[in-house]
Amino acid sequence: MALNTPQITPTKKITVRAIGEELPRGDYQRCPQCDMLFSLPEINSHQSAYCPRCQAKIRDGRDWSLTRLAAMAFTMLLLMPFAWGEPLLHIWLLGIRIDANVMQGIWQMTKQGDAITGSMVFFCVIGAPLILVTSIAYLWFGNRLGMNLRPVLLMLERLKEWVMLDIYLVGIGVASIKVQDYAHIQAGVGLFSFVALVILTTVTLSHLNVEELWERFYPQRPATRRDEKLRVCLGCHFTGYPDQRGRCPRCHIPLRLRRRHSLQKCWAALLASIVLLLPANLLPISIIYLNGGRQEDTILSGIMSLASSNIAVAGIVFIASILVPFTKVIVMFTLLLSIHFKCQQGLRTRILLLRMVTWIGRWSMLDLFVISLTMSLINRDQILAFTMGPAAFYFGAAVILTILAVEWLDSRLLWDAHESGNARFDD
């Protein structure tokens, strides 16, 4: 018995066209964080690309023209004298008006014999932002004059995390709450300039795509075929072959399989920071003279006294001054041990922890910024005066060393310790 099946006739004509040209192939790229070699397709503007294995951002879609970056830099340069030299806060102490600005706080630190601690604050609040705007201006002028731009481009990517104007702005709020127990506070004209400078700096850093600047100024022929001998440069993120001198053909720094002496430098910085954190938390970090009496505060006791007036601000200072430094030390110690013992479990967790400490590390400088600003506000000789204690130097040095330890660690070593050939990683 035959089955009668109805015929289905399409209502619209289906047209099949042959592909007349070869589909576009992607360029081969190595991930600078996990060293995976993959094919990167062509990316349009405002599109980002991520590593298929570790999800690290390979290409950032946010990109401004150099002219727009230069305009932002010149605007920031105009704001800087007002943000640093004009009063941020006014207080009335014992019937006398006192003005506080950024430069005055750094000068008070240096004047009291601790120039190293003052230079830490100076670099993060004044030096690094000033280098940022002058570097962008150098790129703008240098591109037109045919100057060598490689050193500036190499420095810009590392400079971003040292620009800490946003953290200093939080420190202004913390210092205001600490001082309000002794005097009446009012915002100064410099505060508005400083807030504007923070906003412009944040926007500029978020749109400063150094890798795209490398592509514009020093374009290189990408690798179009897969080759395990391809290496990625950690300076400019170019994937290719080393030249005859073993250097990256684009930025001219040595092109090595792994960062040289990464573990040794990381261990040295980490152990030194552990040693410095002990006096930083045991010795007094601030000293207040009130009517001839002397009151010393460690980091913890200062947080407890701050909690009596504002528990939320005390929580912020606790996280930045105690929780973050010790968390960074514990995480980095764990990561280094996992590399030495070739741990194969929990790779995803370790990668996330490394990215976390990379982002939060700079916030530990908050305590030094609060001390710097408070020193310029309260300084009335023996009637009422505020000065920093010996722990300030140890704390600042420990924070900087932990930042350097994270920067010096080559994250690809975590993958080397893991089993080879993993296309995915999980716990």
Score class of each variant (00 low, 15 high):
296 E>R: 10
120 M>T: 04
303 I>C: 15
199 I>C: 15
14 I>Y: 10
382 Q>V: 10
256 R>L: 13
257 L>S: 06
299 I>C: 14
116 I>A: 07
384 L>H: 01
374 T>K: 00
314 A>P: 15
198 V>K: 14
124 C>S: 07
217 F>A: 15
137 A>K: 11
167 I>C: 06
127 G>K: 01
302 G>F: 00
182 Y>L: 15
98 I>G: 02
304 M>Q: 15
109 M>F: 05
289 Y>I: 07
312 A>L: 14
290 L>H: 03
218 Y>A: 10
424 R>Y: 04
344 Q>T: 12
37 L>F: 09
287 I>C: 09
249 P>V: 14
105 G>K: 01
299 I>E: 00
103 M>Y: 04
411 S>L: 10
322 I>G: 12
13 K>N: 08
55 Q>D: 09
257 L>M: 13
270 L>D: 10
119 S>D: 10
233 C>A: 00
368 L>K: 03
128 A>Q: 01
394 Y>T: 02
349 T>H: 15
161 E>M: 12
237 H>Q: 13
226 R>E: 14
309 S>I: 01
54 C>T: 00
355 R>L: 14
241 Y>H: 13
93 L>Y: 01
250 R>S: 13
109 M>H: 02
223 A>Q: 14
328 K>C: 00
223 A>E: 14
226 R>H: 15
332 M>D: 03
89 L>G: 01
187 A>G: 13
37 L>T: 08
87 P>S: 06
44 N>H: 07
45 S>I: 08
334 T>P: 04
248 C>H: 00
198 V>F: 15
16 V>R: 10
322 I>K: 03
289 Y>N: 02
236 C>V: 00
331 V>M: 13
151 P>C: 03
43 I>F: 06
170 V>A: 15
397 A>Y: 04
286 S>I: 03
215 E>R: 15
345 Q>F: 14
225 R>H: 11
421 G>F: 05
395 F>C: 02
407 E>Y: 08
44 N>T: 09
261 H>P: 01
335 L>H: 10
389 G>V: 00
184 H>M: 08
273 S>N: 12
176 S>G: 07
400 I>M: 08
284 P>Q: 10
291 N>G: 13
55 Q>F: 08
17 R>Q: 08
97 R>N: 15
143 N>I: 15
160 K>P: 09
104 Q>N: 05
271 L>P: 01
368 L>E: 09
177 I>R: 04
16 V>N: 06
35 D>N: 08
202 T>C: 13
309 S>E: 15
427 D>R: 13
160 K>Y: 09
71 A>C: 06
334 T>R: 14
128 A>V: 09
88 L>E: 02
267 W>K: 12
153 L>C: 11
81 P>G: 04
343 C>I: 12
73 A>H: 12
42 E>H: 05
410 D>F: 00
205 L>N: 12
401 L>T: 12
153 L>A: 15
352 L>I: 13
374 T>R: 00
170 V>C: 15
158 R>P: 13
385 A>Q: 06
342 K>D: 10
210 V>G: 15
205 L>W: 15
190 G>P: 02
295 Q>V: 10
384 L>S: 02
167 I>K: 03
176 S>N: 07
381 D>L: 01
84 W>V: 07
224 T>G: 14
208 L>V: 14
405 A>H: 03
12 K>T: 06
21 E>S: 09
176 S>V: 11
262 S>V: 06
207 H>N: 14
353 L>F: 14
205 L>D: 14
315 G>S: 14
298 T>D: 10
350 R>H: 10
387 T>M: 05
408 W>R: 03
310 N>S: 13
410 D>Q: 00
118 G>V: 02
239 T>F: 10
357 V>S: 03
265 K>E: 09
365 M>T: 03
290 L>Q: 01
25 R>G: 08
363 W>D: 02
305 S>T: 13
399 V>A: 15
422 N>Q: 06
139 L>Q: 02
390 P>C: 09
414 L>I: 07
422 N>G: 12
252 H>W: 04
56 A>E: 10
204 T>D: 06
303 I>N: 08
69 L>F: 10
35 D>K: 01
247 R>S: 13
115 A>V: 07
269 A>I: 03
15 T>L: 07
60 D>W: 06
67 T>M: 11
153 L>M: 12
246 G>H: 12
110 T>V: 08
263 L>F: 10
352 L>N: 11
114 D>I: 03
287 I>T: 09
225 R>D: 15
331 V>K: 11
398 A>L: 04
70 A>L: 14
328 K>P: 00
31 C>K: 00
310 N>F: 03
158 R>C: 14
298 T>H: 12
241 Y>G: 14
349 T>I: 15
352 L>P: 07
110 T>M: 03
330 I>H: 10
8 I>M: 08
157 E>Y: 11
224 T>P: 14
29 Q>W: 08
211 E>P: 14
316 I>R: 00
397 A>F: 06
31 C>R: 00
213 L>Q: 11
222 P>Y: 13
17 R>N: 07
224 T>H: 13
334 T>I: 13
94 L>R: 00
280 A>P: 02
99 D>V: 05
82 F>D: 04
146 G>V: 03
53 R>V: 07
352 L>M: 12
244 Q>C: 11
306 L>T: 00
320 A>F: 15
83 A>W: 02
